[in-house]
Design a binder for these strands. Structure first.
Length: 884
RNA sequence: GCCGGGGUGGCGGAACUGGUAGACGCGCCGGAUUCAAAAUCCGGUUCUGGAGACAGAGUGCGGGUUCGAUUCCCGCCCCCGGCACCA
């Protein structure tokens, strides 16, 4: 026995560096991952496609491993699986790289794609590479342009002005990301808000449908549905008209019941009333100018100090006729509603703060639900109640909020000063970007004909790929060859639109294109309807709102154009968590932190394993742990998947990333944890090797299909240890099937496979039937681990005497008969505290269980001086004796 | 500021429908093997007290419901994601 194991170790060691490429080339030559394979039901398994930033990072690796495990599991269920891959290849980072290195974005992007494609292939994902696409290819983006023209025809796409960040030094539009503390990231200049003409898509026309359909998206996480619902933000309220001289100012309020408590109005700095008020008033103009500074992002606007200025103008309250002062306020957004609000400081927290600051009247018009007096010096959350009774509201006094709402809206309507109104928070989608590296908007500007659509036969409008941006505006504006073209309508010299499309346009329909990537005649075709909707979509939670909402919207636009049947593109959604790692730093003399990669740091622990210090490997001097953070360049805590794959092989890295955390939670990277995954695979390898060496005949009765109860497995077993092992195998089959197929709890599935592996290793077969059982166990284990670690599984499958691919073998079948237990453990509690555990046969009746529980010595000890009040019996589980 | 999520041993996590808190892995401690080390194998490992049997405490904090709460309810604290031009 001892010698045979020794021999096995000599002839057979786990060497993923040679094994994995060999298995991968076999898959490739057999076209194992083509979506054409398989007879069964279709299963479309999709990952959010990567931005080709340079090299694969851990977030990609995690995303695609989850997708691959699900794809391979579904394939083992006999389904015809589509798992495609592509590149979200337009975008800002390519322009930044171009500026830094003087290389055109196109070259940088395509080089990155080539490198990252190789990295993906080394990870052994079952991707159908025949369907690969990149959004920067004219073959792809021509359909963006073609469809945009359809949207223009239908009036879904239209032009209006929008606000952008303007860097006055570089004379360029900045992305929100490029505005740091209100200043341009390169120039440090104070950023200004600037209005420019842009193209928009009428997503607001679909607001109701996009909202209502969320209820039916049962395969989506609740949190994503809630976030989207709140983003769309449907609110029922009233439009109320205030007169200001000859101007009518319309505002929207969700609380018309508080109208009698309105004591002032506030308008956005860009509002026409503000512009009017600034005439001849330098102080007001100065305030407006100040508001024009800084970035346009809502986070910046909403978190800044609430400030305002009195315009000196007043508006007439539509019901009381009172003159309300009109303020310009920096917290009122021109882009939401009408850019003006009525302020009811007594019942709105922001208005309350503003009124306190500028000493404006605060008039409570709802009684506090708790009956206490209104305290105008301090905000209390119940001031925003909708459950009170109206006061100080003239003839509305005594009404409930709901009654007041209706009565006041009715009176406003009668007076022609308002009406009930539904308002959405959602705004139309601005798709114009003043950038080079994107899909050109197919418009030609003619001095006579205006904005003329490019005729379909002239598509695609091809983006020149040799330009290098320098940070000062869009290089397309200086590219004569692109710019100048005759007007398609009148033929005289005209210029192309130089704005490109938001990259969210590219990512709003790429999943449709995978189904027909080789079709050069149409955007989508019959294959699209055959594959759609996507059965399982996997990607980062950071896309919960924008990308996923735009994709839902765009799919509806294509439905309404008659191009696809479905409205909802993604039936099931899994939002994966981020990948984190420990950070280490030192602070230099200037107080700046210098960050060190975890790979370059040694950590020391005390006798109990607690971390007591960390030192830099290169100099042995201490570094400070900075906590666990998202892997990022700025904290230098990124771990490169490619180098880990080089060291341990893909299977180890895949196994660790699926084992260390459930997919929806953040995953903390740990080199020691990767070692653990590596050890497990080596034990698995040597366990199988020992079995096949020691029992070579066990593998000669090999089957080419999954073992199941109908094969007569399990017959002839009598030893309890053998029955227990077989039960553990079949419990694992049940558990892993549920974890992979329903729960997506890959971590617990792997845990039970590790436990099963430990049990097989402990078991020493004594009869030929028991050897057959061990063979059954190894086969089942290899099949079940295959979706996670496909390379080692293919190899072990063959070593166990099976022919063909483990993925063709299907999924092991649970034998219910094997699950039956002889004895179960029942917990006995006294007053809710566990005092004993008793072994009983299953299915015992309540009275017997209760008696057995009371006979326990330890239980008697706790009951000695007490009277039993009540006994709760949960059959096969627990007895709780309540005593005093 | 607004919307959403999270917080359990030294660490990652498990406990799926209110019923044994800590599966599995890492780390650490002890042992075997070794001239020695690495690797490997075996045992232990929530904390406190106890030689042990066992007892007490314990799931971010404070309260509540319940025979029983990591799980449900109320109030707080901290961390993370998104906020419409990063992708």
């Amino acid at each position: 026995m001892f010698e045979s194991i020794k021999a096995v170790q000599l002839v057979s060691t786990y060497n993923p560096q040679s094994l994995e490429p060999e298995i991968q080339s076999r898959w490739q030559s057999q076209r194992a991952h083509s979506a054409e394979n398989g007879e069964g039901e279709r299963f479309y398994c999709l990952s959010m496609f990567p931005y080709p930033s340079g090299k694969l990072h851990m977030g990609h690796m995690r995303n695609y491993t989850i997708c691959d495990v699900i794809s391979r599991y579904q394939r083992m269920q006999g389904k015809k699986v589509l798992q495609p891959m592509g590149w979200d290849a337009f975008g800002l980072p390519a322009e930044n790289a171009a500026m830094a290195h003087g290389v055109p974005p196109a070259k940088w992007t395509r080089d990155n794609i080539a490198h990252m494609r190789d990295q993906l292939k080394a990870l052994g994902f079952a991707i159908d590479w025949d369907r690969e696409l990149a959004t920067c290819d004219p073959d792809y983006y021509r359909w963006n342009q073609w469809f945009f023209l359809r949207l223009l025809d239908r009036g879904v796409a239209y032009q209006k002005t929008g606000t952008v960040n303007w860097d006055p030094v570089d004379q360029t539009v900045l992305a929100n990301e490029q505005v740091v503390d209100g200043r341009g990231w390169r120039t440090g200049a104070l950023v200004e808000k600037r209005e420019i003409p842009m193209y928009y898509l009428r997503i607001t026309d679909y607001a109701d449908e996009l909202l209502a359909a969320l209820d039916e998206l049962e395969g989506w996480p609740d949190r994503v549905r809630v976030m989207q619902a709140n983003w769309i933000g449907k609110s029922e309220g009233a439009a109320v008209v205030f007169q200001c001289g000859e101007h009518a100012i319309e505002v929207f309020t969700t609380r018309p019941d508080t109208l009698m408590g309105a004591t002032f109005m506030a308008v956005a700095p860009e509002h026409p009333i503000a512009t009017q008020a600034a005439e001849g008033r330098a102080d007001i103009q100065a305030f407006i100018d100040e508001c024009q500074q800084g970035g346009v992002s809502e986070a910046d606007l909403a978190s800044q100090e609430k400030r305002g200025i009195d315009t000196g103008l007043t508006a007439t309250h539509p019901l009381t006729g009172d003159a309300l002062p009109i303020f310009i306020a920096n917290y009122v957004l021109m882009s939401y509603g009408s850019g003006a609000v009525m302020a009811v400081p007594a019942h709105d927290e922001r208005d309350f703060e503003f009124a306190r600051r500028y000493e404006l009247a605060i008039v409570p018009v709802i009684e506090r639900p708790n009956g206490e007096a209104y305290d105008a010096t301090q905000w209390h959350d119940d001031y925003a109640t909708k459950e009170g009774t109206l006061i100080n509201s003239g003839r509305y006094d005594g009404l409930t909020c709901q009654q007041g709402f209706e009565a006041i809206v009715a009176d406003l309507a009668k007076a022609g000063a308002g009406r009930a109104k539904t308002q959405f928070r959602l705004r139309d989608w601005g798709i114009s970007r003043q950038r080079y590296w994107g899909c050109p908007i197919p418009i030609i500007h003619c001095p006579d004909c205006g904005a003329v659509p490019v005729p379909d036969e002239d598509l695609p409008v091809v983006l020149p790929e040799d330009l290098v941006p320098d940070g000062s505006g869009n290089p397309l504006k200086r590219c004569e060859a692109f710019l100048n073209t005759p007007c398609p309508r009148c033929g005289q010299p005209a210029q192309r639109e130089t704005d490109t499309m938001d990259t969210f346009v590219d990512s709003s329909w790429y999943f449709l294109r995978y189904t027909c990537a080789d079709n050069d005649q149409a955007m989508v075709d019959d294959n699209t309807n055959a594959w759609m909707p996507v059965d399982q979509y996997i990607g980062g939670i950071e896309h919960a709102i924008l990308h996923l909402l735009y994709a839902r919207f765009w799919t509806r636009l294509m439905r309404d154009e008659g191009l696809v049947d479905v409205a909802e593109p993604f039936a099931h959604l899994l939002t994966q968590g981020m990948v984190l790692a420990e950070t280490y730093y030192r602070t230099d003399n200037a107080g700046r932190a210098q960050w060190f990669n975890p790979n370059d740091v040694d950590v020391s622990t005390d006798q109990k394993g607690r971390v007591v210090g960390a030192t830099l490997k290169s100099d042995g001097q201490p570094v400070t742990p900075g906590g666990v953070e998202k892997m990022a360049k700025s904290k230098n805590n990124g771990v490169d998947p490619a180098s880990l794959v080089g060291h341990y092989g893909a299977d180890t890295v895949r196994l660790f990333s699926m084992f260390a955390a459930p997919p929806e939670q953040s995953l903390e990277w740990s080199d020691a944890g990767v070692e653990g995954a590596w050890r497990f695979l080596r034990r698995l390898w040597s366990g199988v090797a020992a079995h096949t060496e020691h029992h070579p005949d066990a593998t000669t009765h090999a089957t080419t299909h999954a073992p199941s109860s109908s094969d007569g497995q399990g017959e002839g077993l009598s030893r309890q240890a053998a029955l227990d092992l077989r039960r553990q195998l079949h419990e694992a089959i049940q558990k892993v099937d549920d974890d992979f197929g329903r729960r997506y709890a890959f971590n617990t599935a792997i845990a039970s496979l590790m436990a099963l592996s430990n049990e097989i290793g402990r078991f020493e077969p004594e009869t030929p039937q028991e050897v057959a059982l061990v063979q059954e166990c190894w086969l089942g284990l290899v099949q079940m681990i295959a979706p996670v670690t496909p390379h080692i599984a293919e190899s072990l499958w063959q070593q166990l005497g099976q022919t063909g691919s483990v993925f063709a073998a299907g999924w092991p079948v649970c034998d219910e008969a094997a699950l039956v237990k002889q004895a179960i453990t029942v917990v006995v509690q006294v007053n809710g505290k566990v005092r004993d555990r008793i072994e009983v046969s299953p299915g015992l009746d309540q009275a017997t269980l209760e008696d057995k529980a009371k006979q326990s010595d330890n239980v008697e000890r706790f009951l000695s001086d007490k009277t039993i009040r009540k006994v709760i019996v949960v059959p096969d589980k627990l007895v709780n004796i309540v005593a005093q």
